[in-house]
């Protein structure tokens, strides 16, 4: 069994929860990415399991449907040796506010060590984190943040390009509803990349430039000289009323195809957080182009990043119990 151990003093990560990219420093992000790199190596080896989190309980608490993120977290927890419980709460069956806190209190009484929470409302994960004793990882809250997605995107880019510093990254599509965009804008900015957002004005939130990005309405203009093109899913489920008139018009003007991609650098790489709407925001053939598309790499990096996050957030806990164990074994004479 491969064992990746860090000394108890080497805690490295000074946060109790991971609620967002906002608030992290470049050093902390680099620390998580370095740690993730070591888990990529582990995941590619024959024996993927460690006992780092043996005896720890991780609860996947999902108030919103998810397959890939939940599976990715579940696999991450299991590879680290934790007991992972999945809890899906249909968002329609619960009321907000008090009921969310009730759920948190109920779960808290079961003493989980880590709660991974996804919720359709922005800010709900933070609210919940204030009521529990364990660590909370934001698995996506409304249109606010999705920090592990931004970290896995950063890891994917860093492994291909060596560094994020100075890269020109275009985030395209439904910026308005996207937590992935908000987390990526933060992270890429902190790490020294130049970020552009490209969308029809109806899908760009007001004052987006204040987040340190350049905004474009035209794909060819916005993609010019970009190193990385991140496509976002058109989130029709969050849309009330018409933000764009039709799918065919959206694809024609904002869908990524070979013709529009020509505006970017010749070796520009394509990313997508998934799940993809082929023929809506991305040309199907392009999504499968192994020379240009990092979409499968992103999925692989997701597990490693989530292992790193679970590792980092449980270090204080593990170091305390290690100290307690040492005291008991050694004992006072």
């Amino acid at each position: 069994m491969t064992d990746i151990r860090h000394t108890a003093d080497d805690l490295g990560f000074a946060h109790r929860h991971l609620l967002g990219i906002d608030g992290l420093t470049a050093e902390q992000i680099s620390f998580l990415l370095d740690l993730s790199d070591s888990y990529v190596a582990l995941n590619r080896s024959d024996d993927k399991k460690t006992s780092l989190l043996r005896g720890r309980t991780v609860i996947n608490l999902f108030f919103e449907n998810s397959t890939r993120t939940r599976t990715s977290f579940e696999l991450a927890g299991k590879r680290l040796g934790a007991d992972v419980i999945n809890m899906s709460v249909s968002s329609s069956s619960i009321k907000k506010g008090e009921t969310l806190i009730d759920t948190a209190m109920t779960l808290n009484a079961m003493h989980p060590d880590v709660l991974i929470v996804r919720h359709p409302d922005s800010g709900a994960v933070k609210l919940l984190s204030e009521k529990v004793n364990g660590a909370v990882i934001n698995g996506g809250d409304g249109s606010h943040e999705h920090p592990t997605q931004a970290l896995l995107d950063a890891l994917t880019i860093r492994r291909r390009r060596g560094s994020l510093q100075g890269l020109r990254v275009a985030i395209c599509g439904d910026i308005l509803h996207s937590r992935v965009a908000r987390s990526n804008i933060q992270l890429l900015g902190i790490m020294g990349a130049h970020v552009r957002v490209i969308a029809p004005p109806t899908l760009l939130p007001n004052n987006i430039e204040r987040l340190g990005v350049e905004a474009f309405f035209d794909m060819r203009e916005g993609l010019k000289d970009c190193d990385i093109v991140m496509m976002l899913r058109l989130q029709t489920e969050r849309m009330q009323g018409s933000f764009v008139p039709s799918i065919r018009e959206y694809f024609r003007f904002f869908g990524l195809d070979r013709e529009k991609l020509q505006a970017a650098k010749p070796d520009a790489l394509i990313m997508h957080p998934g799940p993809m709407n082929r023929g809506v925001e991305i040309d199907s053939e392009l999504a499968d182009d192994i020379d240009r598309s990092l979409i499968r790499d992103q999925v692989e990096m997701g597990v490693a990043v989530r292992m790193a996050c679970l590792d980092a957030l449980t270090r204080t806990l593990r170091s305390n119990s290690a100290k307690r164990a040492a005291t008991q074994v050694g004992g006072p004479a």
Partner: peptide, 14 residues
């Protein structure tokens, strides 16, 4: 708007 109904935008681009 589609059908002059005042609700959904038409395909301005196309």
């Amino acid at each position: 708007t589609r059908g002059l109904k005042g609700r959904e935008l038409t395909e301005f681009g196309l």
